[in-house]
Design a protein around this nucleic acid. Sequence first.
DNA 1: GCAACGGAAAGCGTATACAATAAGCGGCAT
DNA 2: ATGCCGCTTATTGTATACGCTTTCCGTTGC
Lengths: 246, 246
Amino acid sequence: MNQRQVVDGGKSSDGGSRPGKNGDGAERHEAIYQSISDAIIEHRLKPGARLREDALAEVFGISRTGIRKILQRLALEQLVTLTPRRGASVTRPTADEAKDVFDARQMVECGLMPEVARRITAEDAQSLREMAAREREALRAGEQSAAIKLSAAFHGRLARISGNATLAAFVERLCSRSSLILAVYGNAGHLGCESHDHDDLVGYLESGNGERAQAFMSRHLKAIEASLSIRAEEDEAPDLFEIFSG
Amino acid sequence: MNQRQVVDGGKSSDGGSRPGKNGDGAERHEAIYQSISDAIIEHRLKPGARLREDALAEVFGISRTGIRKILQRLALEQLVTLTPRRGASVTRPTADEAKDVFDARQMVECGLMPEVARRITAEDAQSLREMAAREREALRAGEQSAAIKLSAAFHGRLARISGNATLAAFVERLCSRSSLILAVYGNAGHLGCESHDHDDLVGYLESGNGERAQAFMSRHLKAIEASLSIRAEEDEAPDLFEIFSG
DNA sequence: GCAACGGAAAGCGTATACAATAAGCGGCAT
DNA sequence: ATGCCGCTTATTGTATACGCTTTCCGTTGC
C-alpha cells in the first residue's frame, strides 16, 4: 500500500522536548484532528464535501477506529455533519445557523473586550500585531486559506486574553464555524475582516479603552456579517409547486 | 451482580449476543448518554467517580465501542475527564473553572434576557412556570437530585426561547457544568436557586420587562455563586514543604 | 422506451480480539 | 527489616472482522 502518511513527517517535529518513543498515539490523533480541522477552516475541504472513513484512514495511516473518533469530535464542534448510515461530510451551515453564530459572536466577543482591555499586556499586544501583520501579508499575497485561518486565530487569541478559558473556547468554535459560513455565503475575493481592523482594535485595547474596543468589535463583526450574501437557499427541497404555479 | 440492563431491557441478555438486528442503535446510544449524563447532573455519580468502560458496557448491554463513543462525547462537554491510560472519571471542576463558568453564564444568560422577553409566548411562560413548580415541589420533598436537574433544565429552556440555538446549547452545557460545580463546592442542604427566583423571573419576562429580567438574572446567578464555598483546594498536589515547615 | 424490480457493491455500525501499559504485589537481596 | 525489582493483573488503546443499510446499475416486463 502506498500510504503516504500526511501527518507523521511535518508536524511531529515540534519542540522535540522528548525525543525517542514519542510516536505516541494521542499526539498523532491530535495532529490528524488538526490536519482535518485546518483543511476545513481553510476551505481546502468545502462544505458538502464527503469524508469517507476508509479514505481518511488510508491517507493518515491509521484504522477507521481512530478516524471515527476524530470525526465525532469534529461533529460535536459542528465542523462536520454526521448523517446516520451516510457518513460524514463538511457541514454546510444554514442561514439560520449563520445568524445565530454571528449573534453569538456579537454578544460574547464584544462582551469580552472590556476585560481584555484590562488584562492585555505588552507581549500580548505585540503577538496580536504580528498575527495581524501576517494576516495582511497573506491577504496581499493572495493566500486566502492562510488569511482565513489567521483571522480566526486572531479572534481566538484575543478571547484567550480575557482569562476565561470557557468563553475563549466557545469563541474559537464560533470562529471555526464562521469560516464555514464564509465559505458558503461569502463573496469571493472579499475576505471577512478588513485589512486594518485588527490593528486598530489592538490599538484601542492597548490603550485600555475597553469601551471603544467593544464598539469597534461590534462594528467589525457587523461589517463581516453584512458582507455575506445570505439568502435562505432552499435548494435542498425546492418548492416545485410554487416555482411552476407562478 | 447479573447483567441488569438499564436502558432497553431484554435484548441480548444471553451470552451468545446476536449483534445488530436492534433497529435503532442511535436512539439506544442517545438514551444511554442521557442516562449517564443525568446520573452525573443529579449527583448520583459524584465528581471523581471512575467510569470503567467494561462496567458500563456490561450495565448497558452494549460493547465497549459504544461506551467509548459516549464517554468521548461527555468528555467534550466536560462532564467527564478522560485521562490517557487511566480511563474516564466524573470531572472535578477546579475553582478557576467554576469562576469561568459562572462568569460565562453571567454574560450569556443575562445578555439573552431582553431577547427572551421579546419572544416569550404565553405557552412558554406556562411551561416555565410548571417547571419552576415541579422544582419547588422536588425541593420541598427533599429530592435534591430531581431539583438540581429541573433547575438546569429551567435555565436551558429559558435560553432556548431566545431563538438562538447556538447560545442555548452553550447555556445548557454551562448549566450541566454548574451542576458539577455545585456538587463540589456547594453547601449541603442549600441548593443553588432560591425557591421563588424562577417564578419571579418568568413574571418579569412575561410582562416584557427585559431590562428588569436581566438585572434579576444577574442577581440570581450572583446569589448562586456566592452560596458556594469556593476555596482553591490544592489537595491535588499539596505543598508538603509549606505544611511541614511551619 | 420507460419504469420498476433485483442483485451486487460500497460504506457505515458494532463487536470482539489482541496488544500495550500502568498499578498492585510478592519475592529476593542487601 | 527494608527497599528494590520483576511478575501479574486489570484496564485502556487499536485494529480487524462481520453484518446491515443504502445505493447504483443492469435486467426485465409492459
